[in-house]
């Protein structure tokens, strides 16, 4: 991916500023560029870690790619292995609850069994009830009510019993 050249002189100046002011982390956004600097503890390494992160250009929207920004629920289950994914078997619109006024079928922490309905995906005016097809606890919800979903899109992750 093309990156604009990082101005090294500027980075050195920023490092100096951090040292002088005892800052541990510094993040600067400018246009489509972002610079993030973190000083590690004095005893563990030589100097600050510099990571230049170019801002992504607006990505072509595939519903798949937007899933990470639409996380609903209190805790995201980071780095947990062995989570089972519930994926959309069809193309359509995701509804988390049976009617607009009711509670969602499941939330983070809900317990599920194979026959538990976890959501509805509407396709061509047909409301398809999607079953968990696994046992466990909902660890993460990846989609929001009314969101368009494609085939294979991850809807939930389940922590098996």
């Amino acid at each position: 991916m093309a990156e604009k050249d990082i101005d090294l002189k500027k980075v050195k100046e920023l490092i100096e500023i951090m040292k002088q002011n005892g800052l541990e982390e510094l993040e600067i956004k400018q246009g489509d560029q972002k610079i993030f600097l973190r000083r590690s503890q004095p005893q563990s390494s030589a100097g600050p870690i510099v990571t230049a992160v170019p801002m992504m250009r607006q990505e072509f929207v595939s519903p798949q790619s937007s899933q990470s920004t639409d996380v609903v629920g209190q805790t995201t289950a980071k780095h947990e292995e062995n989570l089972i994914e519930i994926k959309s078997p069809i193309v359509g619109t995701f509804y988390s609850q049976p009617t607009p006024d009711s509670d969602p079928y499941v939330e983070v922490g809900s317990s599920v069994e194979p026959q538990t309905i976890v959501c509805i995906i509407e396709a061509m005016k047909v409301m398809n009830e999607i079953k968990a097809e696994t046992s466990g606890t909902i660890a993460e919800v990846f989609v929001t009510n009314g969101q368009a979903v494609e085939y294979g899109q991850v809807l939930f992750k389940v922590r098996p019993d």
Partner: peptide, 18 residues
């Protein structure tokens, strides 16, 4: 797919399902 404005996955490789 990236030249389109949107790309939607509709199924597995099998034509009957895609």
């Amino acid at each position: 797919l990236q030249l389109a404005d949107e790309a939607v996955c509709i199924g597995p490789a099998d034509c009957a399902k895609s």
